[in-house]
């Protein structure tokens, strides 16, 4: 299990034990954490599972591919340097303690 913290736009947060193998997106969905839509179910095709990785993060995240990069340019909330699509980050034991911030809107 890896503890992932989802910080909501109002500053409250949900801490979830996510089983490795699930994505950050799926981890939120299974724990009923609101704020991630994932309309396409996790295929990097809709851009509605946008998150901001905590600025102080030092944990290793997978490299971003072109589709994700492109979609982050058209997300509903503005892209920042730390923007990612949460469906593209598989949870591993190494990510235990990761903090991600949810955007104001996904659509």
């Amino acid at each position: 299990m890896a503890k992932i913290t989802y910080v909501h736009p109002d500053g409250t947060s949900s801490v979830v034990d996510v089983e490795p193998g699930n994505s950050i997106m799926r981890g939120a969905k299974l724990a009923n954490v609101e704020g991630i839509l994932a309309q396409c179910g996790g295929g990097a095709t809709c851009g509605t599972c946008h998150i901001y990785v905590d600025k102080d993060n030092t944990k290793p995240l997978p490299a971003m591919h072109d589709l994700e990069d492109g979609l982050l340019c058209v997300t509903a909330s503005p892209r920042q340097d730390n923007s990612r699509l949460s469906c593209q980050i598989p949870v591993t034991e190494e990510l235990d303690g990761l903090v991600v911030h949810l955007p104001e809107k996904q659509l």
């Binding site: 990097a44 095709t45 809709c46 851009g47 589709l67 492109g70 979609l71 058209v74």
Partner: peptide
């Protein structure tokens, strides 16, 4: 086809 950004826009 393989143009998700076009689709979203």
């Amino acid at each position: 086809v393989n143009k998700p950004v076009d689709h979203v826009l």
